[in-house]
Simulated assay, not measured.
Amino acid sequence: MAALTRNEFYKLSQECRDYARRLALHDQQGVERPLCLECNQFLARVQAYDLLQGRLKQVRPARPITRGLVMTVFLIASFLLAVLVLPGVSRGVITGYSVAWPLLALGVFLVPPTFYGTSVEQIEGKVLRVVEALQVILEKNELGVTEAVFFSIKEMLDEAHNELYQQVSLAHPGQM
């Protein structure tokens, strides 16, 4: 567990602001593996700090499972089933498989990616939780920063919070 210093707190605030700006450029409903992996690294690094560990304990890692990955696994599994099992069964089972397979493939394709993976919107929610935890630390002045640094950090965190909150609320207009 690392101690959160003033310098690291400032850098973390800058990183959150820049991260919020970058996330706003992506499709909110899409699942992007590189963003999920980056989010997991970010969360692991942030949760290692002593002041943030307890506050962010409930934030779970992102699931980097994309539609392409699910379809690849489905195609490999169906190919193995066709090669290994179907040669020993009756013609009616083979006909049933050849009719059901395209429908099943379509069904797997139509499952929303957010069902099995973490969308950009969900990543924004995770980063928003980090920003809110940083804002609480700043408001309590637990690190004893000077007034000038306080307002500089506050401005960065407010900008990150507003950007992330806006993106999440755009996806759910009636709920926020």
Rank of each mutant, 00 (worst) to 15 (best):
G96M: 14
A44G: 15
L43A: 06
V59K: 07
V93P: 03
E132R: 12
T118S: 02
S119V: 02
G96T: 15
T118P: 01
L138N: 02
M71S: 06
R67T: 15
P113E: 03
P112G: 05
D50H: 14
R45S: 11
S90N: 09
I76G: 11
T118I: 00
I94W: 06
V111N: 00
E124S: 14
G92K: 15
N141R: 08
L56A: 00
T66R: 04
L86Y: 00
V131L: 00
M71Y: 00
S98T: 14
P102S: 08
M71L: 13
V59G: 08
L138P: 07
A44P: 13
Q122Y: 02
V85L: 12
A82I: 02
R60G: 04
F109G: 12
I123F: 05
R55E: 03
L138V: 07
V93L: 11
V93E: 04
I137L: 07
I94L: 09
Y97G: 02
E124K: 10
W101P: 08
V70G: 11
S98E: 13
S98V: 13
V73T: 15
E124C: 11
V89F: 01
L138D: 06
V99C: 09
V85A: 09
A62D: 07
I137Y: 03
L80K: 06
N40Q: 04
L134M: 03
P61V: 00
G54D: 01
N40W: 05
V99S: 08
R60Y: 11
R129E: 01
I65Q: 11
Y49Q: 10
V85S: 09
V136N: 12
E142W: 08
V130W: 00
R55C: 08
P87A: 14
L80D: 06
F42D: 01
L37E: 15
A48K: 15
L69M: 14
C36H: 01
D50M: 09
P64H: 11
R91E: 06
G68V: 08
Q41I: 13
A82S: 11
R91Q: 10
D50W: 15
Q47W: 00
D50P: 10
I94H: 12
L86D: 04
T66G: 08
P64Y: 10
A133K: 03
E139S: 10
V89C: 04
P102D: 03
M71K: 05
D50N: 15
M71G: 05
A62G: 10
P113L: 01
V136W: 12
Q41L: 12
K126I: 04
L51W: 06
R60N: 06
Y116Q: 00
R55W: 01
V108M: 02
E121Q: 10
